[in-house]
Design a protein around this nucleic acid. Structure first.
Lengths: 191, 191
DNA sequence: CCAACCATGTAAGCTGTTACATGATTGA
DNA sequence: TCAATCATGTAACAGCTTACATGGTTGG
């Protein structure tokens, strides 16, 4: 039996897809974004980005428009296809779960950073509420672990766990603040 | 020409090395720590941990003591060798740089969580001062990027960058707090 | 008796890293 | 003229994920 695998897109793939949807770009331009912004965490170098772009292309999520760069060399400007847009949208509409935020807060924030593409402030608000609650839960989870290890774990370990706790509290605080920020924009729009 | 590579240890490798130095353990026990604490970020499953242990063994950083588990099966309890301890110490004495904190704050915190092993509160204090300053610099760096993108970047992207900024501020705050905590312990000891 | 836990591992496959390769243009 | 920037890629290797394999013991 042949199973057609709905091949998954890696975090780097989604990062690229979102950037390209925001603004069609060449591989070189995308690399620069990764070098110059905190996106660099999702990778960096040509050895990762070019193959990832070709994978996205083979999955028909992006398509190249050919042109000529300023050195006279052939360049490819990538555009998101309808299928790619659909996949990206589905990703952006994913709920924020406690487990995901616990394991990979960066990825959740990456998703948030692309929510402009949905142009749906209601979902943005809901996302932030979910984010806030999940962050509180994560902080609680770390606190529980810390408590349970109190007698076994040396002091620096305890402090490191406290740092994790506080980081999640900071995330929750940010979510509340961002929510207010979004609501203000919402109101300006209604008027 | 044959170059003997001083083969590097991965983050997972250091995580394991530190745990084993704190308390000699079997692979199974180590896996449980990864499953039940935020260390899980540095991996998880047998397919990563057992090979990593064997790599550390081949590098002579750890050594097994054989025993019999409660199921009658042969078990290996791992111990850190003198060479392993030396390598671990060198790692723990690494300065906190802005770049490392920016790219991989988790790894820096992992290192901090093992500082008990050095039993050197002066270094712990210095580490935290470096950490604090680096965190402030990171926050500044994100702020600068955010400022420079203000006109180009859509609002959600701006908010996501703000989250990064605030996260580093929270890290700096934690470092200050932890420093006080350590100093108190220092004083108790002197008395 | 069955699930969960103890305890260790292997194999296929994907992704990412580092380093190298190419070659034109622009600015100091 | 020399370095940096534009622009794209490949090759070797390391590392992790997922899934599978094995098999004994303990508790409900």
């Amino acid at each position: 039996m042949v199973v057609v695998k709905h091949k998954e897109i890696s975090t780097l793939g989604f990062a690229l897809l979102g950037l390209i949807e925001t603004q069609p770009s060449t591989g070189y331009e995308l690399r620069r974004v990764f070098r110059e912004t905190p996106m660099g965490r999702y990778s960096s170098s040509p050895g990762a980005i070019y193959p990832a772009l070709h994978t996205l292309e083979s999955q028909k999520h992006i398509r190249a428009r050919h042109g000529v760069g300023r050195t006279g060399r052939c360049t490819q400007t990538w555009h998101v296809t309808a299928a790619g847009r659909k996949r990206l949208t589905r990703w952006l509409q994913q709920d924020v779960t406690v487990d995901e935020l616990f394991q990979a807060p960066d990825v959740v924030l990456l998703r948030f950073s692309y929510l402009d593409l949905l142009d749906d402030l209601d979902w943005s608000e809901q996302f932030l509420r979910q984010f806030h609650d999940a962050a509180c839960a994560c902080s609680q989870r770390v606190a529980t672990i810390r408590e349970s290890l109190k007698s076994v774990q040396p002091p620096h370990g305890q402090l490191a766990l406290a740092s994790g706790e506080q980081a999640f509290v900071a995330h929750a605080t940010w979510a509340k603040w961002a929510l207010v920020n979004i609501r203000e924009r919402q109101e300006q729009r209604t008027r």
